[in-house]
Simulated scan of single mutants.
Amino acid sequence: MYVVTNAIRVKKGYASQLVERFKERKGIEQSPGFIRLELHVTQGLEDYDEVRVCTTWENKQSFEAWTQSEAFRKAHEQKAKDRPDYVLGNEMFSYEVALSFQA
């Protein structure tokens, strides 16, 4: 499995507004190899809030195919046009899942 996170920094008090923007799906759930999307709100930060958008994929190739898709382009094109002023920045990370346990 392959996991990609996008750590989005927002002004203090705006994490819930960013989470709301992700409730409307833009096609990622139909992308081959997509497993899940989770949003994590980081706790305990003083200067800003952070929302981590975490996506899980069958493999790196599935994620890369999503980033090359028309659905990805459309979803991110609109976000770029109306990026909220409360977004301070972001940083992307990617991981190969080395070990996983379930209950």
Results as ranks from 00 to 15, higher is better:
1 M>N: 12
2 Y>N: 04
3 V>N: 05
3 V>Y: 14
3 V>K: 02
4 V>Q: 15
4 V>W: 13
5 T>V: 09
6 N>W: 15
6 N>S: 15
6 N>R: 13
7 A>C: 12
7 A>L: 06
7 A>R: 12
8 I>R: 08
8 I>Y: 07
11 K>C: 05
13 G>R: 08
14 Y>E: 15
15 A>Y: 01
15 A>Q: 02
15 A>P: 00
16 S>C: 05
16 S>D: 03
16 S>G: 01
17 Q>L: 03
17 Q>I: 06
18 L>M: 00
19 V>M: 03
20 E>R: 07
20 E>V: 05
20 E>K: 13
20 E>M: 08
23 K>T: 14
23 K>A: 12
23 K>M: 14
25 R>Q: 04
25 R>I: 09
26 K>M: 09
26 K>R: 14
27 G>D: 01
27 G>F: 08
28 I>N: 00
28 I>S: 01
29 E>M: 04
30 Q>F: 13
30 Q>G: 15
31 S>G: 09
33 G>H: 04
33 G>Q: 07
35 I>V: 02
36 R>K: 08
37 L>F: 00
37 L>V: 00
38 E>L: 08
41 V>N: 00
42 T>K: 06
43 Q>M: 10
43 Q>S: 14
43 Q>P: 05
44 G>A: 08
44 G>N: 06
45 L>N: 04
45 L>V: 05
45 L>Y: 00
47 D>I: 08
47 D>K: 13
47 D>E: 11
48 Y>S: 13
48 Y>I: 03
49 D>F: 01
49 D>Q: 02
49 D>N: 08
50 E>A: 06
50 E>F: 03
51 V>D: 02
53 V>Y: 09
53 V>A: 03
55 T>Y: 00
55 T>F: 02
55 T>M: 05
55 T>A: 03
55 T>L: 00
56 T>Q: 12
56 T>M: 07
56 T>R: 05
58 E>R: 08
58 E>A: 09
59 N>Q: 10
60 K>N: 11
60 K>A: 12
60 K>R: 15
61 Q>M: 11
61 Q>D: 10
62 S>H: 04
62 S>C: 06
62 S>Y: 07
63 F>L: 10
63 F>M: 09
64 E>D: 10
66 W>F: 06
66 W>V: 01
66 W>D: 02
67 T>K: 14
68 Q>W: 06
69 S>T: 08
69 S>Y: 02
71 A>T: 09
72 F>S: 12
74 K>I: 05
74 K>W: 03
76 H>W: 13
76 H>Y: 15
77 E>V: 05
77 E>M: 11
78 Q>G: 09
80 A>E: 11
80 A>G: 15
81 K>S: 04
82 D>E: 11
82 D>S: 15
83 R>Q: 11
83 R>T: 13
83 R>D: 09
84 P>K: 08
84 P>Q: 01
85 D>T: 03
86 Y>T: 00
86 Y>A: 04
86 Y>I: 00
87 V>L: 08
90 N>F: 15
90 N>R: 08
90 N>E: 11
91 E>I: 07
91 E>Q: 09
91 E>Y: 10
91 E>S: 02
91 E>M: 03
92 M>L: 15
92 M>Q: 13
92 M>R: 15
92 M>S: 15
92 M>K: 13
93 F>V: 12
93 F>L: 15
95 Y>E: 07
95 Y>M: 07
96 E>A: 14
96 E>Y: 12
97 V>F: 06
98 A>L: 13
99 L>C: 06
99 L>F: 15
100 S>C: 10
100 S>Q: 14
101 F>R: 10
103 A>H: 07
